[in-house]
Design a protein around this nucleic acid. Sequence first.
DNA 1: CTCGTGTATTATGATATTTTTATATTCAGC
DNA 2: GCTGAATATAAAAATATCATAATACACGAG
Lengths: 107, 107
Amino acid sequence: MVAEERNIAADVLKAMAHPIRLGVIEVLADGERTVTELYTELGCSQSMMSQQLKILCHQRLISIRKEGTQKYCGLCNRDFLKLFDCMHTHLRKFLHFKDQSACFCDD
Amino acid sequence: MVAEERNIAADVLKAMAHPIRLGVIEVLADGERTVTELYTELGCSQSMMSQQLKILCHQRLISIRKEGTQKYCGLCNRDFLKLFDCMHTHLRKFLHFKDQSACFCDD
DNA sequence: CTCGTGTATTATGATATTTTTATATTCAGC
DNA sequence: GCTGAATATAAAAATATCATAATACACGAG
């Protein structure tokens, strides 16, 4: 990966690196959802959700399709769902390390 | 994933979501490196690298081993290297979409 | 046309991240 | 004990992100 690609990749990752946005991706893995369904299910305000969806859309992580007065959101790239598996494993290890301070971080 | 896990996962992703930190992970995929080797290879200041390494270490993405006056960094979790494959594919698609504005984002 | 529902935008303050500069620490070799 | 190389920390300014509140827009039903 060259430097310029790393800049773009960092932006894509940054778009995922937020609890609500991760939640959106996770929920959409199960299939399309309305904006209202998303903010209801994830427990945030409508405004908040609208802004987060825009960020995800910008990085082409989700696509948005208009149908009448509503918008349906879906995943653009199911490939990234692998990340949740990695993350689950990592969280187990991470919490494990945290307990035992088995890592050479000084805190 | 429950809400609390998503908070932690977001922090881990945030730690990866930076050009230099992505670079570090990519370089370390090839094997251990000294701090000096890292900031030389990635073209940033020593201070910058030290701070970025701390962030990666905090999230247990890398481990740091002291040997004399130097420190050797290595990957904690090669599992996340999958991410680079996903990302490569995504960048191809992303740039493609960008050209054709084939996504329903309104900008 | 107007009303209600679904969604987007804007503004704002609080907080966090980024980057640089300067200084400190640590340790091996002499 | 000094010196120099490797690394860490602190402080500060610029910028970005987060979250909320208020308002605007779009559109179908009646």
